[in-house]
Design a protein around this nucleic acid. Structure first.
Lengths: 340, 340
DNA sequence: AGTCGTTATGCAAGCGCTTACATACGGTAT
DNA sequence: ATACCGTATGTAAGCGCTTGCATAACGACT
């Protein structure tokens, strides 16, 4: 069966009795073709079920209308939501999104970046700032603009859209300390390769310092993203000689794990132990007690990122990074520490 | 600044003192090039930071090593998890995944399918069976194999990997009825375009019929996917003259919404009202009481789908669909109805 | 030493599209 | 009528890569 005769531009041209150039124009710059011809051509396009060969188009025009995004994982509601918004907005802008995930591994990310570029991505959305200098050189040499999302750091020159992880967390912890907590525990994603996580932990320490607490006393555990890992970390923290009165978690998922574990250990939240999260995903209000957390405007971030990146692709380089604002949501999981 | 001099095959060839054909072979069929040459060429490839132009490659070789997947939304933990596994497996098989989402809309799905095909996807992963015949014709005419996931339906000829939504739900409801429930309410995603949702509701009715209950008495509400919509649907159901003793939900997210609403209305779960879910996402065990639900092996499904689809792309057409097994997880949200 | 068979490499023809440039075609203004 | 101009369409040269076929290089065998 050699039914695989995919129609080409030329087939359309022949059948419509015009040149391939005209067909191409009908598709790409219809206003440059007189109506009568255009209608006839588009009609044939339909009849034949023609759709242009992307590779050929890229090769000839050197432009793909494609944006690539590389996210650490899809199994994280936070990225999922932001990326969904990103994709919806891109769609309205006539661009297609290619997604790859790096499983939180730098080498894989680097490889995915190369892959997406090879595929002709016009622009790239990356998460966070932390990556090899070499990669940025590569991007530059290819002339592909990249935008970092989920972060805002005034000190980093690379363009980004996001929020200041450190300040946001600091704001939360200021509140925690104001309530009377002195012995603070924390659960974070691994810091080495994750500038968002690092920013948040820095925020905790900054708040401590600012309130005359020794930041070195922070009881910090690093662990992978996940409910179960959060639970395990929580029980580890509570097993130390002087367990904290509050456990500040790097994100809601870890916090929910901590919460579950607390219940399992017979601890009442927030009477015996306070727990806080970060991100304000749906889950934060579905658990009992609800999580005190930092609300992040994910959808807004995705949407704005799309517009910004498309501008960049079109040569309208924004002059500066966009800072979005987070908001502290105080809910049931945080209270004053029990009187000693 | 014309720093955008992207090296081409020819540049590499010239610098290495070989022909472009040899360079190409070094990259694609290294065993056909003698070691000495190969080393020299690959060295130059590195020096120049060469990476092949995807478009050109597609055009010439007519093969992309790319699989496309179109999912209804990324904001759904279920798809996210399965797709993450799908992508990880594809990666080990040397394929790249392109993801698009359809926002649960058929027309968008059709458009995305065309886009992915135009981009040269070698194969496609789709969710569910329900779509226009025309689309299948199109796929066939292009010779692009497609695999439907998240469903298994012996009666549909199209290849699929998944589970029998109807049977899985029926099994759950048999249990519900066995506990003594007679008046059943249900919350489902819109049925018209979602064969998985439809299968599940059919399962409810089948269990009713099987137990001599009139399936027409099922108190069913269709609503979009979401916690809030689930909550709203729940309160609507409970507002009817003879509210049910159990609300069977089409998925865990709807169930969690129902659960939240029940609490809000001062109903105790499961004493006053039982609630069940479907999918067994993390969330199911994080709420209180935990959800009775149907466990679906999402990661396994994603992984197997990847292998199956790659086989299909390589011409090794599997002869039949793969059926995965679900499992009933009985948890706190389901109990006997209150004695009347 | 000559012949033949292998294997490594080069040559060059496309793949399907876009687009600069050339040309044809009408319509105005003179 | 003639000259001129603007617009619609055609011509054809690539874009960077793969691959069938031709050729060269090299051993092994007689």
């Amino acid at each position: 069966m050699k039914s695989r005769i995919v129609p080409t531009l030329e087939d359309v041209a022949r059948k419509a009795g015009v040149s391939t150039a005209t067909v191409s124009r009908c598709l790409n710059t219809p206003e440059r073709v007189v109506e009568k011809t255009r209608v006839r051509v588009l009609d044939v396009v339909h009849q034949l079920g023609y759709s242009p060969n992307f590779g050929a188009r890229v090769l000839a025009a050197n432009q793909t209308n494609t944006i690539g995004a590389i996210i650490p994982t899809m199994e994280n509601a936070i990225f999922a939501r932001g990326i969904q918004a990103f994709q919806e907005e891109l769609r309205t802008l006539g661009m297609t999104l290619l997604i790859a995930s790096s499983s939180y591994q730098q080498e894989i990310e680097a490889e995915q970046i190369r892959t997406l570029i090879a595929r002709g991505a016009d622009g790239l959305l990356l998460i966070g700032h932390h990556r090899d200098k070499e990669i940025y050189h590569f991007l530059e040499s290819r002339g592909v603009p990249a935008l970092s999302a989920w972060v805002y750091d005034a000190d980093t020159p690379a363009l980004s859209i996001g929020f200041d992880n450190k300040l946001a967390m600091q704001e939360l912890v200021e509140q925690v300390i104001a309530l009377g907590h002195r012995n603070i525990g924390a659960i974070s994603a691994p810091l080495a390769t994750n500038d968002r996580a690092k920013g948040r932990v820095d925020g905790i320490r900054a708040a401590m310092t600012h309130n005359a607490l020794d930041p070195d006393t922070l009881n910090l555990i690093e662990t992978q993203y996940g409910v179960d890992t959060g639970a395990a970390a929580f029980s580890q923290i509570m097993g130390t000689p002087t367990p904290p009165s509050v456990v500040v978690c790097g994100n809601d998922v870890l916090a929910v794990g901590a919460l579950r574990q607390a219940k399992e250990m017979g601890l009442r939240v927030p009477q015996d132990i306070s727990i806080t999260g970060f991100d304000d995903i749906d889950l934060a209000t579905l658990v009992d007690p609800q999580l005190t957390t930092v609300h992040v405007p994910h959808r807004q971030m995705g949407q704005k990122a799309a517009r910004m990146l498309v501008d960049m692709v079109n040569g309208k380089m924004p002059t500066e990074s966009i800072r979005l604002h987070t908001q502290l949501y105080l809910r049931g999981s945080l209270a004053r520490p029990a009187a000693n």
